[in-house]
Design a protein around this nucleic acid. Structure first.
Lengths: 222, 222
DNA sequence: TCACTTTTCCGAATAGCGTTAGATTACGCG
DNA sequence: CGCGTAATCTAACGCTATTCGGAAAAGTGA
């Protein structure tokens, strides 16, 4: 019974180091959350899939909540990076409004387990750690500031304040995504009852807010 | 040790009949859902609070999901009744728009456990039974038709279809409520960042849609 | 290569969960 | 009173998260 050392997943992993195993656990955990719902994560199931027994996972995470917390932090990080990407692409141009809304929806479609953990409360008793909340608050402020800067680069025509208009944008963004996920989770963006509404909502917002390089002297960007 | 027969909660209940005990179980279950989150309901905890052992609950509900399902159905019923109340109060008058949005938010504040079960997916693996889904679809159609009738009793000025405008109303309603619950669960309606936004959003909607008894000949109702 | 340390893993155990089966208790009625 | 039925119990199964103590493997230095 001399098996090659690499036939055993445990032995195979031992050589890859702590960080790699951690990553594998996180990846499998996200798989389960995607398949069964974010709140249905089970450490025993994780252990089964990575070829371990459940107690061994405690070498890598001090509890199930700590695993959730790491995934939460990771999600924040990724979302923040993607927002930065959007900024590089659109600057404060008028397409940024549509792009921001559509991106939120796309993020929810592509990483439903992250979306659930970040923007819903699917796990009873789970509160992100203070460290993760710092990241989360940072993202929130960034995000608010972005939308606000965009709005200030134009003229509000509805009598609402900049902050109120910003919050309306957030409400529409989250509402559209939540309803799309609940009613047509697999529809593509631009399609389906709520997915198709995104460009219309973006257009509608321009009834209340006129985009423009400068409220006084407007020119088409060449 | 001759205790009065009524000192034992089990004996006390025996005389009250099946339906009363069922109600007590439902009530306690809703308490727990409100305290710990809708997904954190535990039959053992229910049993403890009503003075039973967990298996005894299976006399009244054939499973934990069946208990969830009954609460789901109850919530639908109640929400539907409250909508009918709104109709009696406002008819198709222009205040109905604000009242409908505010009512959704108030329902979420007053019955968070029902709101979570009806409009979120807090319990992994729980799908309402077909019977409950009939009720749910009925409510959804009712609700859609109500908003649509209100919109048709006026003029849409945004280029959107009636159905699209109706969906925008739904998006705003759900988005406002979800964000209020996540960020300021205990604020009163009309107060707080999102709670205070309700009247403004209702007003904003009238930029895209003009209310009126009749688009052609408008009169004030005496 | 050998001995020693550290890291990684597992087996056993605890306490809680949902659920089932079977025995037991209490009640209403003849 | 005694019988039948409805309500409740205890015991058990298999699942979960978690803790502990020890085994096993990997790494380290001579």
């Amino acid at each position: 019974m001399v098996l090659g050392r690499m036939a055993n997943p445990v032995l195979r992993r031992r050589n890859r180091g702590f960080a790699a195993t951690r990553q594998e656990i996180i990846s499998v955990a996200r798989d389960i959350m995607r398949e069964e719902g974010a709140g249905a994560l089970s450490l025993h199931e994780v252990a089964r899939r990575v070829g371990m027994k459940a107690p061994s996972l405690y070498t890598y995470f001090e509890s199930k909540h700590a695993l959730y917390d790491e995934i939460f932090r990771l999600g924040m990080e990724q979302y923040r990076a993607e927002l930065a990407e959007l900024d590089r692409k659109y600057g404060l141009g008028p397409e940024l409004l549509y792009a921001t809304i559509a991106h939120y929806m796309r993020f929810a479609d592509e990483h439903p387990e992250l979306y659930a953990l970040l923007f819903e409360r699917p796990v009873p008793g789970f509160e992100p750690s203070e460290a993760s909340m710092v990241e989360a608050r940072g993202l929130l402020e960034d995000s608010n500031a972005r939308v606000q800067a965009l709005l200030e680069n134009g003229t509000i025509r509805s009598g609402l304040s900049v902050e109120q208009t910003r919050d309306v944008v957030i409400v529409l963004t989250h509402g559209l995504t939540a309803l799309k996920r609940a009613n047509e989770p697999s529809a593509r963006i631009g399609e389906g009852r709520f997915g198709a509404l995104v460009p219309h909502v973006a257009a509608l917002l321009k009834t209340a807010w006129m985009p423009g390089e400068d409220p006084v002297s407007r020119e088409e960007p060449s």
